[in-house]
Amino acid sequence: MAIIEARNLTYTYPLSEKPAFKNVNLSIEKGEFVLLTGPSGCGKTTLCRCFNGLIPHFYGGKLEGEIIVAGLRTVDHPIHELAQHVGLVFQNPENQLFALNVEKDVAFGLENLGYPRDEIRRRVDWALKVTGIYDLRSKPPFELSGGQQQRVAIASVLAMQPEIIVLDEPTSFLDPLTARNILEVIYQLNRSLGITVVLVEHRLDLVARYANRIIVMNNGEIIADGEPRRVFLDENVKLVGIGVPKVVKLYLLLKEEGFDLGRVPLSPEEAYEAIAEVLAHDRG
């Protein structure tokens, strides 16, 4: 069975008349790296809040249809139980760190769950090492850079050893190099630990190469869902105007002129190979 399964899911915030999203059908398998994107206000953040039960338990409102995460119907289980299966990392790193030093922050979830002390210590050290911030463990949060703070936020959900990590625009306040390093950490969680990743991002140029699947939302509906190369060619996606990576744009521009590079490139490296191949082929 899929690890995240949504059927005809529709949600309306309290005091709102229009649903934030409607009739969402979604099935995410264990181990996938899913990129969720779409214009601002399309409902992607709202959808993320359903994955660990913040919706409906924290936000209230009206949730119709069904959503099952890690085998649990989220409406029937409290957030703290779902939190052990789904880790949520938010956009602003500053507002998800509460403690006065890094390791205490990473321990927070496990403390709440009442784990024995030596188990907490073991898991905290592990999470700090995996995210590369073990040396920062006794620093206060305000002495950390934005990138380091976001690593702490990731480590602190990782310590609960969830099967799924959902990240809502985790790099939007970061400069490109730092953003790339954070995405590399997330990719490693997916690759070496097999954690299912759902990543919300606008900056497709940075993320396209990591994801095995892209879901595009617009106006509260899923308008495209599939393998990145296919989604980038989708006519619906073009109309919404999500910012495809520059190399994809180049591919599309060449295609308009009647030159097909064969495969949609997801990185400059792939674009280079495709172009070199076409040139060599035509020469030969």
Partner: peptide
């Protein structure tokens, strides 16, 4: 903050432990 706390199992048990 409240959202982040909830997402990290705030209030899961009365017998909270401490690092």
């Amino acid at each position: 903050l409240a959202e982040a706390m909830e997402s990290r199992a705030w209030g899961a048990t009365k017998k909270r432990t401490n690092l």
